[in-house]
Amino acid sequence: MIEIRFHGRGGQGAVTASEFLAKAAFNEGNDVQAFPMYGVERRGAPVTAFTRIDSKAVRNKAQIHEPDVVIVMDMALLDAVDVTAGLKTEGKVILNTGKSPEEMKKTLGVDNPVYTVDASSIAVQHRLGSKVAPIVNTAILGAVVKATGMVKIKSLIDVVKENAPAKKEENAKATEQAYNEVRGEKIE
């Protein structure tokens, strides 16, 4: 079982990201579950979403308290939310920032593997959202797939192309670009 937690802001597409990842994993033959933190969401407010993936039936319907992977889509959240809360010892962190993984490791104060990608710039390049509020979900997913190998990049791109509500090709390109640009341990 792989348990993933997304941290984003309302409007960035964290909930959609959790679903796209679930769909890609399902298409590879896994059982999956995707759900938002049960809140009363508003645009701009912190949003948490989750994905569970397993080759066996996913029956656990509790929230995820000890994730294997944490994804942070907005760096300003680091001041407001304890994003690494409950993260497993070997759990991975994927951040939307242009800074290096080494620097972010220090900022977060963790020994976990940390990966970074400038998903906001990639989203802006592909005209996803605006410069002030880029929609970074499809880009960050490309980085997640490269950092974790939990699904094949082709499976993810197929899901993005099929399910993105608009700008399907641009979203797919953002996914691929982030997949190629993410930095971190064991990534050439």
């Binding site: 679903e19 679930a22 059982d31 999956v32 759900f35 938002p36 049960y38 319907k61």
Partner: peptide, 11 residues
């Protein structure tokens, strides 16, 4: 059940 099923996506 609210959210646990209503807003959780599964196959």
């Amino acid at each position: 059940d609210a959210f646990i099923l209503s807003h959780t996506k599964e196959p």
